[in-house]
């Protein structure tokens, strides 16, 4: 009897611990002093994927700047709906449509991401050159995201479970200066500095140093290091705080990635943001893709 009681107690404690690990959708979480690296990173991932909001819409531009200063441009309109639905395991759905330049105008990408971190995304493309929908395999995590200086996992697929974490220090971030924007961001922002090590062996980076804003739990800056311990990539994210129904939503408005080896740089600027507009899930279906005109 005693054994059964102890077993029951153990199961209850384990279940309670597991539940505590999962943050509830549509809530706002902020880090606190004394939190572990794991707890801070859970909040960071929660905020990265805007799981505090029901839906988010962006329009913006991406700039690809090579070493010589030559600039290419893409403009996009993006929508996300967060679901966190246990019945089909869907965490959120994203729809990205290229609105320019004309060569890629109309190209659209619909991706469904799942709660299970080991599960790949389901991805459909609308291809203007075929005027049809094409189901495609999810891009590999270490592939460049749309030709940018960050990878697919940097933007859309890396999960909390992919790395192990260690709190290195707490400090005020000295600020990040963007040559492209000619502006300095996040000066003296109090941060946790966390070292993230990938669980995969022989991955394209050996560790990341991530600066997490203590006030809002978002990663504002990170450095990636290769197997030889050499820094090869930096990523800066600029956030704005949106007040929605009395809740503070940190929304990423600016992203700059630099490849220190090639000198190439990518900037993504969100020009407009709409939050919690009551988007219908019908907008994130194959049928919605098939309504494309370009």
């Amino acid at each position: 009897m005693k054994r059964i009681f102890l077993l029951m107690l153990g199961i209850t404690l384990i279940a309670g611990y597991a539940l505590a690990q999962e943050l509830e959708y549509f809530h706002v979480y902020k880090p606190k002093d004394g939190m572990t690296a794991d707890e801070i990173m859970r909040i960071k991932y929660f905020n990265k994927y805007t799981l505090f909001a029901h839906d988010v819409q962006y329009t913006g531009k991406a700039y690809f700047i090579d070493k010589s200063g030559s600039i290419r441009e893409r403009s996009t309109a993006r929508k996300r709906i967060n679901l966190g639905r246990a019945s089909d395991g869907i965490a959120y759905k994203d729809l990205t449509v290229f609105t320019g330049p004309a060569q890629v105008k109309g190209l659209a990408n619909l991706a469904w991401s799942y709660i299970n971190p080991d599960r790949d995304q389901d991805v459909w493309l609308w291809l203007p050159s075929l005027k049809r929908i094409r189901k495609v395999s999810a891009s590999q995590a270490d592939d460049s995201f749309l030709g940018a200086d960050f990878t697919v996992e940097d933007i859309s697929t890396r999960r909390f479970e992919d790395e192990t974490y260690k709190l290195v220090k707490e400090e005020n971030f000295t600020g990040y200066t963007s040559d492209f924007m000619k502006k300095t961001y996040s000066v003296n922002t109090p941060c946790f500095v966390i070292e993230a090590t990938p669980k995969r062996a022989n991955w394209y980076y050996s560790r990341r140093l991530v600066w997490i804003d203590k006030n809002y739990g978002v990663n504002i800056y990170e450095e990636k290091y290769d197997a030889n311990g050499k820094k090869f990539m930096t990523l800066f994210r600029g956030y704005e705080i949106f007040n929605v129904d009395g809740k503070e939503y940190p929304i990423q408005m600016f992203l700059e990635g630099k490849d220190l080896r090639s000198g190439h740089c990518t900037d993504i600027i969100n020009e407009t943001v709409k939050i919690d507009q009551g988007l219908s899930e019908d907008l994130f279906t194959e049928r919605a893709l098939s309504q494309s005109r370009w």
Binding site: Y114, N116, D118, R119, D120, Q121, D122, V123, K135, V136, S137, A138, Q140
Partner: peptide, 17 residues
């Protein structure tokens, strides 16, 4: 039909059409 094998396993990452 189409299906992408999204769950972990030997077929993960394959799309069948």
């Amino acid at each position: 039909m189409n299906k992408t094998f999204t769950n972990p396993g030997p077929l993960q990452g394959i799309t069948l059409r």
